[in-house]
Structure formats: C-alpha cells, structure tokens
Amino acid sequence: MNIRKQASVSVAVLLLATGTALAGAGTADADAAIAAAEAARKAAAEAKFEWNTTAPLIEEAKAAAAAGDFDKAVDLATKAKFQGDAAVAQAKHEAEAWKGAVIR
C-alpha cells in the first residue's frame, strides 16, 4: 500500500469515525462490522468450535442493516465477532487443557 493510498484510507476512517460520533453508524460501518463478524465465525467453524449463537446474531445484524438500523446492526455484529473470537480462543485453550480432565 503506498503512502497516498494509506492517507486516503486514514481520511476515510477518520470521516467514518466522525460520522459515527455525530450521526450514529452508517451502512459502511454495518457492512464492515458484519464482515468482521463473519470472518470470526468462519475461523471458529474451521477450528470446529463454532457456537450455535453466532450465526443467528449475524443474521439479525444483517436484518437490522437492511431495515436501516445501523447502530443495532453494528451492536449485534460486534457481539457476533466477540463470540467468534472467544470460540477460537476456546479451541486454542482446549487443544491442551482437555488432557487435564482425562480420567486416569
């Protein structure tokens, strides 16, 4: 990424952030939050540790975004991303921790 591109991205992020602060989340915020949630969910699924609460949250976030409620969409997607990340952390933790539970 060149400096000019980087600068324009920074400006865009700044504008988004300002926009969010002033007027709540916009469609771009919702899309970004949903994409991040989806990526986290996928990582959990690949680890075979996905929670069954995550995909429904993403669906709800999409529905909220479609209905124009971007604040709600971002809120739900953030929760979904949190879950995806937590499930991946759980998979990593259990990769060793399960051994401590084995009946010997």
Binding site: A86, Q90, E94, W98, K99, A101
Partner: peptide, 13 residues
C-alpha cells in the same frame, strides 16, 4: 474431554 460452546461444557463435564 474438550469444553465447547458458549456454555463451555465437555461431554465429560
């Protein structure tokens, strides 16, 4: 023996 899910239970739990 691995804990899974939001409630963090293994079969063995």
């Amino acid at each position: 023996y691995s804990k899974r899910g939001q409630l963090n239970f293994s079969c063995a739990d």
